[in-house]
């Protein structure tokens, strides 16, 4: 098994390298960091701009491939280069990476667990009121894009807080720097509420639809009938035999849904003013910050492939048929 994991890892490293290089090339060719310096008052001399851009490896007069090699050489040694105005990308990333990871981790786990639970419940209660209610709500939720949901949540909380006269639920930022200790922790949790809802609701709806359909497919299969022929109650047969088997296909969607989760995180961070990797991407694109964009792309690629890898492991642990003995 270890050998195959290693091979998988090697493929993933190549894919990450390719994806990140692609992203760098795209960013380096489409973006114009020079613009930020050219428009200045008083005007900056061209040689000065060139020198600055050269120092940051952002000069469009240098052939793109040469810039790429410099960048890639840096990345290999762990240096992601300079931001558009000379800051260290590494430092910026260090500040932001945990912010995003925390959001993504909570969102992914909660989304998967709740989605599967809701979907399984819905399947067992097929055609009952609760099933229909869950079905309708998940359709509505899936029709509301994250940026809309986040905006709506922010507006609603704003009005709620105003109506109450105090801040019940935080809707901007990640924590209050003035607090410390236990209060700080609670405050962090409070700040997490809205971003988590806006990030997970969609994936709960997504997984619940999948899990429900998979359960219903499995429900009519022979082995559930066998379990009932043994003398198990319908409910027991469903939970012991159908749910477990129906989890397998849901686990394969894990990797795919993670990409959507990342995109959702960009909006969530931006709208709730979290200084994570997603918000950074949007700012970096607007500031023509090539190296930051490339760094976020690399981070994204690593996350996506890690999720795919986890999904493989999850499927292998759930399904004895795909395990290599």
């Amino acid at each position: 098994m270890g050998k195959f994991l290693l091979r998988r890892l090697a493929t993933n490293v190549i894919l990450i390298a390719l994806a990140a290089s692609l992203a760098y090339m795209l960013a380096a060719t489409t973006m114009n960091p020079r613009g930020a310096y050219e428009g200045r008052q008083p005007p900056v001399a061209e040689e000065v701009i060139d020198a600055t851009l050269d120092a940051y490896n952002l000069n469009d007069k240098t052939p793109v491939f040469e810039r790429y090699l410099t960048w890639a050489g840096g990345v290999v040694t762990g240096d992601f280069g300079k931001t558009w105005n000379g800051g260290s990308v590494n430092e910026e990333m260090g500040r932001r990476i945990m912010v995003s990871l925390r959001l993504l981790l909570i969102g992914t786990l909660l989304g998967f667990a709740l989605g599967v639970a809701v979907g399984a419940y819905s399947a067992v209660r097929q055609y009952r009121f609760s099933d229909r209610a869950i079905g309708v709500s998940s359709f509505v939720v899936m029709a509301v894009p994250v940026f809309l949901l986040a905006t709506l949540l922010a507006i609603a909380t704003y009005n709620l807080n105003r109506g109450l006269g105090f801040t019940l639920i935080e809707y901007t930022g990640e924590y209050n720097p003035r607090l410390s200790g236990w209060d700080q922790f609670l405050n962090r949790l409070n700040h997490l509420i809205l971003p988590t809802i806006s990030l997970t609701l969609g994936s709960i709806a997504f997984y619940s639809r999948i899990q429900r359909n998979m359960m219903l497919d499995v429900l009519n299969q022979d082995f559930v009938r066998t379990a009932m022929a043994k003398g198990l109650r319908r409910r027991t047969a469903l939970f012991k035999h159908a749910l477990r088997t129906a989890l397998i296909p849901s686990a394969t969607y894990f990797a795919f849904a993670f990409g959507t989760m990342l995109t959702g995180a960009i909006f969530t961070e931006k709208i709730f003013s979290w200084h994570g990797m997603g918000a950074w991407l949007v700012d970096a694109i607007n500031q023509n910050d090539v190296n930051s964009v490339a760094a976020v792309s690399l981070f994204t690629a690593v996350c996506v492939l890690f999720a795919a890898f986890l999904s493989d492991l999850l499927v292998a642990s759930l399904d004895p048929r795909v395990r290599v003995s």
Binding site: D222, K230, G231, L232, R234, D319
Partner: peptide
């Protein structure tokens, strides 16, 4: 259902046609 589950598999058992799909694949 409660009474029926005491009969099924105890007094009456059934053997199905396709034994691959009749067993739960994950146990």
């Amino acid at each position: 259902e409660g009474e029926l589950t005491r009969v099924r598999g105890k007094a009456i058992s059934m053997i199905f046609q396709d034994p691959l799909s009749a067993f739960t694949p994950v146990y």
